[in-house]
Design a protein around this nucleic acid. Structure first.
Length: 274
DNA sequence: CGGACAACCTGGTTGC
DNA sequence: TGCAACCAGGTTGTCC
């Protein structure tokens, strides 16, 4: 599940290998993944454009093209990008971007939930409102205890649900929120406004830590996440609760529990997290 | 507006 | 072995 560290890893690897590359042709194999505009206009507009920079905002990857156009990717649950030396489509390839040097940038998305958007200068497509509503990333200097206290004080929802809200902590998903809550010793079901200042201070610290460690370890490969060369990340080896339900807590030995919050899984240690 | 939750989508896993 | 049912999960949209 590509969250901030996974998308950042993809961004860095792409910046190293495709900056300056020219797109010669675009082939849409599954038009559903083109979120804006229609797939015909999408492919036509991108022909013979050039990739000038590779950026990221939250979980969105942004290829900045000549002329101010932006190619925005969202990987949702299972999307990824691979750069291949030739044009042979990989398994689950949904859109192929042929580069003028013979390589191909392939958008891989088994579950077809991920999207690609082409944004012209000044355009704000309705399908991309999520991008324009992003809050601070946990690693941002402004993401402080005071900031998060102010945001959470007026919210009654469970802290876990709010950590997944991209307008509150952009880039955080299910893996890193479970890990940060475990390290901060906060139970995911806690109502946000009941959190004490020192608990929020711990959470700010652990959110920054897990995101930074995730990036340093090239992301978490639990299922569908691969890097642009097809290799996996390493942070899955360091997970303390995510994917460890029914296994012993690494700190106290208590069995890690899985509970359903809304319609997503949440893992925690009933002993360590109060 | 906040909060809860179904729907989107399909490959992989589980159960019979 | 075969096949149906179920599950994962980020985001959007709907309902209250």
């Amino acid at each position: 599940m590509p969250e901030l560290p996974e998308v950042e890893t993809i961004r860095r690897e792409l910046a190293a290998c495709i900056r300056g590359a020219k797109i010669s042709q675009v082939e849409v194999l599954r038009s559903l993944v083109v979120g804006h505009p229609g797939s015909a206009k999408f492919a036509k507009t991108l022909e013979s454009d050039e990739i000038e920079a590779v950026e990221r905002q939250g979980k969105y990857l942004i290829l900045c093209l000549r002329g101010g156009r932006k190619l925005v990717f969202h990987f949702r649950l299972s999307g990824s990008i691979v750069v291949t030396p030739d044009r042979t489509p990989q398994r689950f390839a949904r859109v192929l971007f042929y580069l003028s040097d013979g390589r191909a940038l392939q958008f891989i998305e088994p579950r077809v939930l991920g999207r690609i958007y082409l944004v012209l200068p000044g355009e704000k497509p309705k399908a991309l409102t999520g991008l324009f509503r992003l809050g601070l990333e946990p690693v941002a200097p402004g993401f402080t205890t005071a900031h998060l206290c102010a945001v959470l004080a007026k919210r009654k929802a469970r802290i876990k649900s709010l950590l997944l809200d991209q307008s509150i902590a952009s880039g955080v998903g299910n893996i890193y929120s479970d890990e940060a809550l475990f390290r901060a010793r906060i139970r995911p079901t806690r109502r946000a406004h009941t959190l004490k200042r020192d608990e929020i201070a711990r959470l700010v610290r652990t959110l920054k830590d897990v995101i930074r460690e995730g990036i340093e370890n090239l992301g978490t490969s639990v299922k569908d996440y691969y890097r642009t060369d097809g290799r996996t990340g390493n942070f899955q080896k360091m997970l303390r609760v995510y994917g460890r339900e029914d296994e012993p807590c690494r700190l106290c030995g208590t069995t890690i529990k899985l509970l359903k919050l809304g319609n997503r899984g949440s893992r925690y240690c009933p002993h360590c997290q109060k």
